[in-house]
Design a protein around this nucleic acid. Structure first.
Length: 416
DNA sequence: TCTGGGGTCCTTTTCCTT
DNA sequence: TCTGAAGGAAAAGGACCC
């Protein structure tokens, strides 16, 4: 007997919001449209706090509505002091050579007049939820890929047959626009790998439908880096072998790729270059780890700056504990991450007897981990991480062990 | 010279137990 | 008691993503 109903060929969509952070900010501050705006930095005030301060010194100004705030009140890049990078920049800012991941001090030299807005994750999360709820009402099988992206399984959604999914994608695009005020780009293809590349092809506000037969004409001419999973390292290694395009990658001997890049990654490279990918669209499961980290304004020395570092570590542990509690998890393994002045990062972990989300236990364990690093080199970054997570059932809180005396602000750096 | 903060996933190394 | 092999778990590191 044969299968009564052969499963239909997969149709997978990838939805990517257009310049998400910047677009959300422009919804709030439309007066910034067409101006150079960068979003980023770290540790500085929210825009609300900034404006509250500025408005205090301008008693005649009493219209607090965001879209009424005059341009002169917006903070400029030139006035930013400290470390930090640009998370995203508007097109007008990019014309000055300013772009994502660039240091703010460097960007300030290129475009001092650019307006600098702090990252407002709360607001982005709100729009992200709105977008995902909108999509899920039309096509319920979605996979979360961060704030501004989702994969959608179109295969069994009514209407997918029309124009290869183009019509359905248009419906989603229009509904997202109407519910959020934001535009997005959608790619539709036989799998996630190709759908992701397709969504990038007609940006912004575009739709691109790819068939398997488009591989040679549309995918193979693209640079290898366009494959989601080939980063700067792999790309540089491919370039050394004069493999620049996906087509060139596809023509390599798979055995050679596996020898050169490892069995698993090499095989994956070969399959990807041929447009093959069977990954299902699956809703994200439980988180694997949670962490909090911070980069210091200037490098701190574990011994000389002990009084400064201690409270920072304690605060990171408290924030991590709050995160774990808010999401209902316990961590069985607690670890730290440090980055030295030369950007080298190292980690130290420790598995504890009973999983916990207690700030004192996290602090105590992190202190033990710190003892195992080189304490004679200055640190640029310090982070705390909980992994081996276990879901907390109901509202049950774990029995708290006695608070450790050294958990209250002193950096635990010396051997006992 | 500059290089954030969350994450996921994978591979390699180290440590422990038998 | 020592030694070595084997296997698994934990720790460490790295690449990648948004």
């Amino acid at each position: 007997m044969t299968d009564p109903k052969p499963s239909p060929p997969r149709r997978i969509a990838h939805l990517d919001m257009d310049a998400f952070f910047a677009s959300v900010e422009l919804l709030r501050y439309p007066q910034l449209k067409d101006l150079p705006v960068v979003i980023g930095g770290s540790g500085h005030a929210t825009t609300e706090e900034l404006f509250a301060k500025i408005l205090q010194s301008e008693p005649e100004w009493d219209d607090f509505r965001p879209h009424k705030i005059p341009l002169r009140f917006f903070p400029r890049l030139s006035s930013y002091v400290g470390r930090g990078v640009i998370t995203t920049a508007t097109y007008a800012a990019r014309q000055f050579g300013v772009g994502s991941a660039m240091g703010l001090m460097k960007a300030a030299k290129l475009c001092p007049e650019a307006i600098l807005l702090p990252v407002d994750f709360e607001r982005y999360r709100h729009y992200s939820r709105l977008m995902k709820e909108t999509v899920a009402e039309i096509a319920p099988v979605i996979e979360d890929r961060g704030l501004d992206e989702v994969y959608i399984d179109f295969t069994n959604v009514p209407g997918v047959q029309r124009k290869g999914g183009h019509t359905l994608a248009r419906v989603i695009q229009m509904t997202v626009l109407s519910n959020t005020g934001l535009t997005c780009s959608i790619g539709v293809a036989p799998n996630k790998l190709l759908a992701k590349m397709a969504s990038d092809m007609h940006k912004p506000n575009g739709i691109c439908v790819l068939q398997a037969s488009d591989l040679e004409s549309l995918i193979w001419p693209l640079p290898c880096r366009k494959i989601n999973g080939i980063g700067p390292k792999a790309d540089a290694k491919l370039a050394k072998h004069e493999i620049a395009t996906i087509g060139q990658l596809a023509s390599q001997d798979p055995i050679w790729l596996m020898q050169e890049f490892g069995k698993s990654y090499g095989a994956w490279l070969y399959e990807s270059a041929h447009g093959r990918n069977e990954d299902p669209v699956s809703p994200r499961g439980e988180p694997v780890n949670m962490s909090r980290e911070t980069t210091f304004e200037k490098d701190l020395h574990p011994k000389k700056d002990k009084e400064t570092l201690g409270p920072i570590l304690t605060q990171l542990c408290e924030r991590l504990s709050q995160d774990l509690k808010a999401k209902g998890y316990l961590g069985k393994t607690i670890g730290i991450r440090v980055r030295y002045g030369n950007f080298q990062s190292i980690t130290r972990d420790m598995t504890i007897d009973a999983p916990s989300n207690d700030p004192n236990i996290i602090r105590q364990t992190a202190g033990q981990c710190i003892k195992r690093i080189d304490l004679n080199r200055s640190l640029r970054l310090l982070g705390v991480r909980a992994s081996n997570l276990q879901k907390l059932e109901g509202n049950k809180q774990p029995k708290e062990k006695g608070a450790d005396k050294e958990a209250q602000g002193q950096l635990d750096l010396e051997g006992s």
